[in-house]
């Protein structure tokens, strides 16, 4: 299964796509809940044709704040109105003292953050009555760290019992920016908890630093890392192409989805043969 992030820019195109259709769509529930009008109608049309994954931005699972119960109540209602198959958010924080910052900020990689996430994840899942999936984020700053990133993510997933949304581009971006081997990193993550994958483009700065923009085409090394990920997983999981900015014409996105599909097929055939 290969899906695409649902964007207003191609919301009119998507319901009309016949050739190489995405297998599912994903969007941030915050941008669509409690709305009506034109884009809501486009969403309804798309929802009639495509399975829906929701990928949240404002759960702020790692911040010391209590869960935002009003938001969760709205979310629960939204999940009743729209047939959402999977719900994910990020291992990060975006809200402090009941004020949102609308950016995914990096958590200190410390035991206290692990336990906080475990407690909040349980509260969220109990309230929503559905599993929560958590994504490894990209990050540009390490504040305090008592463990490696791989150990931190593994601990979060172990303690919370959440599903794992493995973002391959984030692994690549972080490996370049923080100087580690992405393959070794991948192998140290709990493969059995992976629920689905994200892949996206990033922007290379003149000094070589990478920004996780979702505004460019997927880079070749990220495709290579996707292949390695699929080989490591040795089972099929859905893969979602994220494209949030500089959105190109549909055929370009279709090409990227097809390249992902070819990698999926290639890995599947090799595994089948052996």
């Amino acid at each position: 299964m290969v899906g695409i992030g649902f964007r207003k820019e191609f919301s009119e195109t998507l319901p009309r796509v016949r050739k190489d259709k995405p297998d599912f769509i994903e969007f941030a529930p915050e941008n669509w809940m409690k709305t009506g009008g034109y884009y809501h109608r486009q969403l309804q049309k798309a929802a009639e044709q495509y399975p829906i994954f929701c990928h949240g931005l404002s759960l702020s699972i790692g911040s010391p704040d209590e869960p935002d119960w009003d938001f969760l109540a709205d979310l629960k209602q939204f999940f009743k109105d729209v047939p959402v198959v999977r719900y994910s958010d990020h291992i990060s924080f975006s809200q402090v003292s009941n004020a949102h910052l609308y950016e995914l900020l990096p958590l200190p990689m410390i035991e206290e953050a692990v336990s906080r996430i475990a407690v909040k994840a349980r509260q969220v899942q109990d309230f929503l009555e559905r599993p929560l999936i958590l994504e490894n984020p990209s990050y540009y700053l390490v504040t305090e760290a008592d463990m490696t990133e791989a150990d931190f993510i593994s601990a979060v997933l172990r303690e919370s019992g959440c599903g794992f949304l493995l973002d391959v581009n984030n692994v690549y971006v972080n490996s370049v920016n923080h100087g580690y081997d992405p393959a070794a990193f991948l192998r140290s993550l709990p493969a059995e908890q992976v629920s689905y994958l994200h892949i996206a483009g990033h922007l290379k700065q003149p000094d070589g630093f990478l920004l996780d923009t979702h505004g460019e085409a997927i880079a070749d090394p990220v495709y290579d890392l996707l292949k390695l990920t699929l080989e490591t997983l040795s089972r099929e999981v859905p893969i979602l192409l994220e494209r949030d900015f500089n959105i190109p014409a549909w055929p370009r996105l279709r090409e990227e989805m097809n390249r992902i599909r070819r990698i999926q097929t290639e890995v599947r055939e090799v595994q089948f043969a052996s």
């Binding site: 915050e30 941008n31 809940m33 938001f71 003292s97 009941n98 004020a99 949102h100 609308y102």
Partner: peptide
């Protein structure tokens, strides 16, 4: 302080 999770 911004209390809504909805950016718009």
């Amino acid at each position: 302080p911004l209390h809504s999770p909805r950016l718009w």
